[in-house]
Design a protein around this nucleic acid. Structure first.
Ligand SMILES: [Zn+2]
Ligand SMILES: [Zn+2]
Ligand SMILES: [Zn+2]
Ligand SMILES: [Zn+2]
Lengths: 408, 408
DNA sequence: GCGCATTTATCGCTATGTGG
DNA sequence: CCACATAGCGATAAATGCGC
């Protein structure tokens, strides 16, 4: 750490380029460097010159990348994120901070993944790079800091901390009424604490067993994988299995019915608040941070755009190409099966295809209405999760907004 | 160590290229290196060439990025220096040791078993290789590799796992009635260990990296690393299941307590307004950056790629095969329904699926409203997690924003 | 079980873009 | 024109997994 051999820097002559010579690694650049990499969050521009402390640079940057860092460091905070996106409002800036520093001089356009990997991004949404890599779903665009590459290690303290929390929570849970506890644990399956990777798990043997399959899968979505969280909601569902047959199993826990109702209410409230006061929720949401953000981050599905596909195919081996095509086809069809099916868009009007089978009746307006509603039902039925509904709504909103801008 | 090919690597100076000369790995890095790595430690010092930062360090730094860091950030460096490398002190010399660390750490994606045997791994969690071998239980993804660093570090997988458990529990808790939750959190909340940290710490990186492809899919309950805490979500499935899989026009849900209806109605109105009257919300929309988007980062489900499926099926018993296919189908459709944009981008204009229905409907009879509400109920019943919805919404908002930029 | 040819990922450093 | 950021090349470390 001692200061770096500054003088030496200069020596490094490496062929200077024609034109201007970059001496990038000068002191200042150092700071820059940090800023850049660290990006994780920091990004926002603040100049972190401050801590330019030369020493340890490298490691430090990496380290710093945590958001908290910035937070604590000064400002940044969500602002950057939100801001970036929100753009519209634009008005109220942070009153307080005022730092003249421009936050983000240059907006990013490459997808996050490409930025992280420092590779070329074709700027499509599932960009080719991501598609080729087999994870079109991880192709996102966030106008924000770049995250550092994943690392296999973590701080032990983290582990300890988590462990502690977990225990604490579990402990607390014990104090709850029996029924509740039961429901909860049931839902959440004994989290064996074990941190250690001791195997356990699924036993082996019958391969079929290995695949948990059952259940959740079809879940309308989301939840899915191991994450439970989603799921949990032990409530409502059980209660009104309204929607048709259930997949069997899991009989609703009984004594909780009273709670369920409440849960439903809560859900409604939540939805409402999200819809109307996103920022308000911010707080809540924020705090629930219990969840790991990691969850959904990476494998979202996304249909590959035709262009991207075509492009990639160009020089890829036929095998890969075929694979991509097939993959895409799957995505697309799946997508269609749910979103599109009930509608016959070509009619340019609401026309629930599915419903039709039900017996085509005359075209009475009345009936049309009826169809409409039924179709809507179909949709809603396929929007099992709040995420979905919220997403659709949001999406729609965005589209409108976007369009108005484009068409200007 | 010895295995390391290379120390000599360094020699390979690859001649400087014509055109621009990169001397990348040399001089300049020096300074930098020195600052950073060297200090750190350990590294033995190999002649500069070797600066190979030995490794540990490198990766370690990365690791550290956790929040905890910042906390201490005040001095991060110290940490890094001493801590991380602490080991070094003293023995830093052995060339051997140090070597084991790599300059460019990469996360593994094949399961441990496959890696060990050097055979192909389909990257699913019980990977086919393991399944076929009859020991799906032994299929784990431990990023084993080097786990050298003594003290302060731990495998990230551990952290992930813990985190997951914690989240799961908390999520579940959230579904409980407010009062209960309050009691619980209160009891344990004492801001124990800054909770916040956890969230972030882990965040970057995620599994997706690890399993580029669709992997987790079958995971169902298995947490990624082997632990089996099954995922909970006891009931949700039931409900949701129906939807995607079945497209039957199930009759509208009904029969909840009156009060539920009220709540739902409110929510329904909200949702409706969002969907049908986007502009109203527009303002809000912008700000979104709500919640820690980080939340869901990471474990989204992804359908099994056709290729993978095909491959596995190849020599598997038909029964299993069928199961897999079905499972996949369900996953695909479910997930797609969430992610799939309701518009048809290729048309360069949208096909507002939702819009239509909403838009018109001026004279909605009373009973129509009723249906709508019923539909809303369906949604609420499946309300999964706030985090998810936020994440998704955010995600898409980003996309829209991005598009608007690209399109100018 | 494993040598080793391939494929893939990481990252120093340069080229560019952009707001001020 | 400059300071500061992003884009992304291309060398090269590492992981994968064929084939014996
Ligand atoms: Zn990209
Ligand atoms: Zn991408
Ligand atoms: Zn495997
Ligand atoms: Zn395996």
């Amino acid at each position: 750490m001692s200061s770096f051999p500054s003088s030496s820097d200069r020596d490094k002559q490496w062929g200077v380029g024609p034109g201007r010579s970059f001496q990038q690694y000068e002191p200042s650049s150092f700071a820059e460097d940090l800023a850049t990499r660290a990006p994780h969050n920091v990004t926002p521009g603040l100049s972190h010159h401050d801590w330019s402390d030369p020493s340890g640079k490298r490691s430090i940057d990496r380290i710093i990348q945590s958001e908290d860092y910035e937070r604590s460091h000064g400002k940044v905070e969500s602002l950057s994120d939100s801001q970036a996106l929100s753009n519209d409002s634009g008005n109220e800036d942070d009153p307080e901070e005022k730092h003249r520093e421009s936050k983000r001089p240059r907006m990013a356009i490459s997808c996050s993944e490409c930025r992280r990997r420092k590779i070329k991004c074709d700027r499509n949404i599932p960009c080719m790079a991501c598609v080729r890599r087999g994870m079109p779903g991880s192709c996102r665009w966030e106008n924000a800091k770049v995250e550092p590459s994943p690392q296999p290690f973590a701080l032990k303290t983290q582990v300890d901390d988590l462990q502690r929390q977990l225990e604490s929570l579990q402990e607390t849970l014990k104090t709850l009424p029996a029924e509740v506890v039961k429901a909860v644990t049931m839902a959440q399956q004994p989290s064996n604490s074990n941190t250690s990777p001791s195997k356990q798990g699924i036993e082996h043997q019958d391969p079929r067993e290995a695949f948990p399959r059952d259940t959740q899968i079809s879940k309308g979505g989301v939840s899915s994988n191991g994450n439970n969280h989603t799921s949990s909601r032990l409530s409502a569902n059980a209660l009104n299995a309204t929607s048709s047959a259930t997949r069997s199993n899991a009989p609703p826990p009984k004594g909780l019915s009273a709670f369920y109702d409440d849960a439903a209410e809560n859900a409604a409230v939540v939805l409402e608040s999200i819809a109307f006061n996103p920022q308000t929720n911010e707080a809540d949401a924020g705090n629930d941070s219990m969840i790991s953000h990691e969850y959904w981050r990476g494998n979202m599905l996304t249909p590959i755009s035709g262009a991207a596909l075509a492009g990639s195919a160009k020089d890829d081996p036929p095998k890969l190409r075929h694979q991509l095509e097939q993959q895409n086809q799957e995505y697309t069809s799946a997508l269609t099966s749910i979103v599109a099916p009930p509608w016959d868009i070509t009619l340019d009007r609401f026309n629930p295809v599915l419903m039709q089978q039900g017996g085509s009746e005359p075209d009475t307006p009345q009936h049309l209405m009826r169809h409409k509603l039924d179709a809507m039902h179909s949709i809603f039925e396929n929007l099992p999760s709040l995420s979905q509904s919220y997403y659709l709504a949001e999406q729609y909103k965005n589209i409108i907004h976007w369009r108005s801008r484009i068409l200007q």
